[in-house]
């Protein structure tokens, strides 16, 4: 039995404080994924908190056949996508609300410009591609793990990754970033 499952058994026996271990272990990658989908720092923090509370409250429904993080990421992805649907608006990353510099005089500024354009392009990406790309790059998951979380087979995961990356390429090329 892996560490997470042992911790979950302890929580279900009443040792609630043990949940802190799971929060500390997963809040950063979960936040990274939610931030890239929601596109807003404050929303991402709020959704992340909500995801952990929901997962705690539903812990009895967790099936040990699955990895805990797969279950958690699935809740995170669903929550972030649902948040976007409920707030049908064009979200801009809060980091992106600043005006773009008119020219980039240093490498650091140039890189910052690229990151901002990348974040903008990620927001524009259709959800089906965004989920796969975010899970691969920002949660560093394998194709198999992404397939489990998104509920599609590995072949389709790869196909969405390739199409999503090609779309990002187009968007970044338009912004003169590649």
């Amino acid at each position: 039995m892996d560490d997470d499952k042992i911790i979950i058994e302890e929580i279900l026996k009443g040792e609630v404080s043990r949940f802190e271990l799971l929060v500390k272990k997963y809040q950063q990658p979960v936040y990274n994924v939610i931030f890239r989908i929601s596109g807003n720092v404050e929303d991402a923090k709020e959704i992340t908190q909500d995801v952990f509370v929901k997962s705690y409250e539903s812990l009895r429904n967790y099936k040990p056949d699955y990895k805990f993080f797969s279950w958690l990421y699935r809740i995170a992805i669903n929550s972030a996508l649902m948040h976007n649907k409920q707030n049908r608006r064009f979200v801009l990353l809060s980091e992106n609300t600043e005006r773009q510099p008119e020219f980039q005089s240093t490498n650091a500024e140039e890189n910052e410009h690229k990151y901002k354009q990348l974040n903008k392009a990620l927001i524009e990406l259709p959800e089906k591609y965004k989920s796969v790309i975010v899970l691969k790059y920002y949660a560093a998951l394998s194709y198999a793990q992404i397939a489990t979380i998104t509920g599609i087979d590995e072949k389709r995961v790869k196909s969405r990754l390739y199409d999503g990356r090609a779309l990002l390429k187009e968007l970044l090329a338009k912004a003169n970033c590649i």
């Binding site: 404080s17 500390k24 809040q27 908190q49």
Partner: peptide, 8 residues
Amino acid sequence: IDNTHSIM
């Protein structure tokens, strides 16, 4: 980020 306290 570290929202452990708030989450707990």
